[in-house]
Amino acid sequence: MKKLVIIPAYNEEKSILGVVRKLQQDAPDFDYIVINDCSRDNTEQVLDTNQINHVTLPVNLGIGGAVHTGYIYAMRKGYDCAVQIDGDGQHDTAYLQEMAAELEKTGADMVIGSRFITYEGFQTSFMRRVGKTYLSGLIRLVTGEKISDPTSGYRMVNRQGIRLFAGDYPRDYPEPESIVTLLRAGGKVKEYPVIMKKREEGVSSIGPWKAVYYMVKVTLAIIIEKMRPRTVRFEK
């Protein structure tokens, strides 16, 4: 099975090397690709001097556009499995093998690394958890499926998932919306308990003022997604 780790990186000069080195140790059978989303710091030089496999976007596209590029790459290179992790080190690559085993064993199309199954490790703030509960409820209302951690950026998909996401992937705040897209295409989602670390460097992309925008945007995106005709259907 050809497996790929997609690592979007925007201004991650301090953490990206550590993330890739740890990944190579934890999961030597995974290939990886770093998507440098037009970083303004020295990320590009770090990637070049350390000969890290990467693609550099000439224009900043945001997290969704960067990850989308990774899925297009996975599709073109014929990968059977692709997993996205953040370039800041908050997703522990020690889980990659277990998640891949879960993907194969259960025949799921997507395995999400969830913080809210065992509630261990770094937990987000109270307001974030309120948002998470709301999004879980909304997804359940729209698709009937229970997703405990809809905003987790730590997710693995199989071949069908790669094809779906290479076709189109939401631009910003893509996580909850893309779960709905996959479920509506007839995909199966499993969650795997993970412990997430606090970010090593840099700041979260979602500040307090953006939170409101986030909830409104994601809510509308999910509702509109429900209104779209189904263009892709997964094989069982």
């Binding site: 998507i35 990467h54 693609v55 550099t56 976007l57 000439p58 224009v59 596209l61 556009g65 989308h68 590029t69 297009i72 790459y73 073109r76 631009r171």
Partner: peptide, 14 residues
């Protein structure tokens, strides 16, 4: 359109 072009250019460059 810019997004699609950006991705194409980046992957081609690679």
């Amino acid at each position: 359109q810019i997004k699609v072009l950006t991705q194409k250019v980046a992957l081609l460059e690679k």
